[in-house]
């Protein structure tokens, strides 16, 4: 079992603090930067972006619309405006290219809350977790898409969706939404590890499907260098995605983390003292083979 008290020390020793927190810092900058763009209007009168993650208008020109919310609206019988359709196409294209769950790890504000819970879990050494199936989120996704069809209340999920609630809360007004956010924090901290984002959230499940064939992936191209410290498994919010890529060499599996559960957060890249992981293309396997052959040719011991 990984010693949680020394988690990340090897990486810091090998690469320095900044390099071993590079993508974590970048993600926080991305999440907070997006919030700042939306807040610049109401706080300072700089209307760069209006609206919220459900639908926004940037510089009075670029519409962006959340495909998941719009899909729910369309299932309850809405014919969207052209701007919304353009907005959805741009968003879908973007997340298809960079990975659907990039939404989860680089954009979604709830990620900061659940990451905090996960961090605190590690700090406090809380290892107990209840067994919730990771497929629950797909059931939730189906549920949220059926509800607009059968219930007259319209987009039912948006009444309680903590993701939009938190973002809207920060940009517009929070009201009692913080209770929901606190609930998720406590759930993740005390009930289930990565409980919300990794098991239940249908928003993540939707973007998971959007990015199921994304070209941008994390890979373990240098998997021969792995020293089995297991720290990547500890910090990864979806640890089941790592094993096939990292340990699948003998089975002939690709070193690319192909599962669309992977949020492309890059935490494994940061935490690895041996630089096993990196961002790359989906079809990096050929490069891997090439590299190995190259190393063998150069007499490097594999």
């Amino acid at each position: 079992m990984v010693d949680l008290t020394t988690l990340g020390d090897d990486a810091i020793a090998a690469k320095g603090w900044f390099k071993s927190h590079k993508f974590l810092i970048l993600r926080r900058l991305s999440q907070l930067g997006i919030l700042a763009l939306f807040l610049a209007g109401p706080w300072f009168g700089l209307w760069i972006v209006k609206g919220n993650l459900a639908s926004s208008l940037t510089l009075d020109f670029l519409p962006l619309t959340d495909p998941y919310v719009l899909l729910q609206a369309m299932l309850s019988g809405v014919v969207p405006e052209t701007a919304a359709i353009i907005g959805v196409v741009i968003v879908l294209l973007f997340y298809f290219l960079v990975g659907g769950r990039v939404y989860c790890s680089w954009v979604c504000p709830v990620n900061m809350v659940t990451d905090l819970a996960a961090w605190l879990r590690r700090k406090l050494g809380i290892r107990t977790t209840s067994q919730i199936s990771r497929t629950t989120r797909y059931w939730m996704l189906v549920l949220t898409l059926i509800l607009p069809l059968v219930v007259t209340g319209g987009i039912v999920w948006e009444l309680v969706n903590p993701v939009s609630m938190m973002f809207r809360g920060i940009v517009f007004s929070m009201g009692a939404a913080w209770v929901m956010i606190a609930g998720i924090f406590l759930f993740d901290l005390l009930v289930a590890k990565d409980g919300w984002c990794g098991h239940i959230c249908p928003v993540g499940a939707f973007y998971n499907l959007v990015g199921s064939k994304s070209p941008l992936k994390v890979n373990a191209l240098q998997r021969q260098a792995c020293n089995d410290c297991m720290e990547c498994y500890v910090v990864c919010p979806e640890p089941q995605v790592i094993k096939p890529a990292l340990k699948g060499e003998k089975k002939g599996l690709s070193p690319v983390i192909l599962s669309s559960d992977c949020t492309n957060c890059g935490r494994c890249i940061d935490i690895c003292a041996k630089d096993v992981f990196s961002y790359g293309g989906r079809h990096a396997i050929k490069i891997d083979e090439y590299k190995r052959e190259d190393e063998i040719n150069r007499g490097v011991r594999v």
Partner: peptide, 23 residues
Amino acid sequence: GACIRCGLCVRDCPYDILFLGEV
């Protein structure tokens, strides 16, 4: 069913009379 809760109407109201429902 149609409102996606984006708040664009709130932002574009020149008299700032619109609010979004809170929890």
